[in-house]
Design a protein around this nucleic acid. Structure first.
Length: 272
DNA sequence: GAGATCATTTGTGGTCACTA
DNA sequence: TAGTGACCACAAATGATCTC
């Protein structure tokens, strides 16, 4: 099978500077290919980890977690921020980052906005203390109202939750046409990692987030260099191991090039 | 280079069967 | 009769590729 280098670019932090950022982008050609996933220190442009994956979004996003775990174990590096594209903005990925205290500078994958003129989820207030949503008319949407005699049927509190208003409440509501014209009652889903998604939404309002999005574009230069200068438009070795070897060698070359620029000429090895 | 098109992915709304 | 969980279909967002 042919292998072609497509791209994913997570962005990494340096050990000396705890402020770290990462980014990712994807390109999926219409033929069999592998993706080159790099973890990059944004402050110095050093690639700290590389992972070859199939050109499938889940695999590419998953590689970010793999590399983060690996550099933590190998170099004791832990980024303060992770810059990535929307592919990493899913609930589970954001939840994982918040859990490990990495600030997600990532656009949140959000489809809750309604376009038919009815109220979206954002129009409902979240009452964390009472575990309920409050609709614009002031009515509560709860997840549970029932006591179970069978413990096996009791809610686990895990996974996706559905908050619903009472049928009678909605039927008597003067705003029903703006809320749930096609249903007897309004319901709102809440993902398991909704708190983490809210963290990402809050970060997206900051100035630092704007800077992070600009920094993301710098990473493209590394891939441009990879393809145009190092000529990695096409893989010569076959299989995932071959792809990984080629990506690793190319990354090594890029880092050595970076090192040569940093070191003074007097410290560089003499030519034979 | 810009806009159009396509494929993929994901979250949400809605339905249905079961149960209190 | 109404609350709940599970499931499915759909729409929207996104990015890559295609076309002009």
């Amino acid at each position: 099978a042919f292998g072609a280098a497509s791209e994913v670019q997570p962005k990494f932090t340096s050990h000396s500077d705890p402020a770290s950022q990462w980014t990712a982008a994807r390109k999926g050609p219409a033929f069999f290919s592998y993706s080159d996933n790099n973890l990059i220190d944004m402050d110095h442009g050093v690639i700290v980890d590389v992972e070859a994956t199939r050109s499938i979004r889940q695999a590419e996003v998953g590689s970010t977690r793999t590399m983060l775990d690996r550099v933590k174990a190998r170099f004791d590096l832990h980024p303060e921020r992770l810059i990535a594209d929307t592919a990493c903005g899913t609930g589970p990925m954001l939840g994982w980052q918040v859990e490990r205290k990495t600030a997600p500078h990532i656009p949140v994958f959000d489809k809750s906005e309604r376009t038919d003129g009815t109220w979206s989820r954002a129009d409902f207030g979240w009452d964390a203390e009472n575990d309920q949503y409050i609709c614009p008319e002031g009515q509560a949407l709860k997840q549970f109202r029932r006591n179970y005699s069978d413990p096996n049927r009791e809610p686990t509190g895990q996974g996706r939750a559905k908050y619903r208003a009472l049928r009678l409440t909605c039927q008597a509501c003067p705003s029903k046409a703006r809320c749930c014209p096609n249903m007897d009652f309004r319901s709102i889903t809440r993902e398991e990692h909704e708190d983490a998604r809210q963290v990402a939404r809050d970060i997206a309002k900051t100035d630092q987030y704007v800077i992070s999005m600009k920094l993301r574009k710098k990473v493209e230069m590394l891939f441009a260099h990879l393809k145009r200068i190092l000529g990695l438009n096409r893989l010569r070795l076959r299989g995932p191991c071959g792809a990984n070897d080629e990506f690793l060698l190319a990354t090594t070359a890029q880092n050595l090039r970076k090192l040569a620029k940093v070191l003074p000429a007097s410290q560089q090895p003499r030519k034979a």
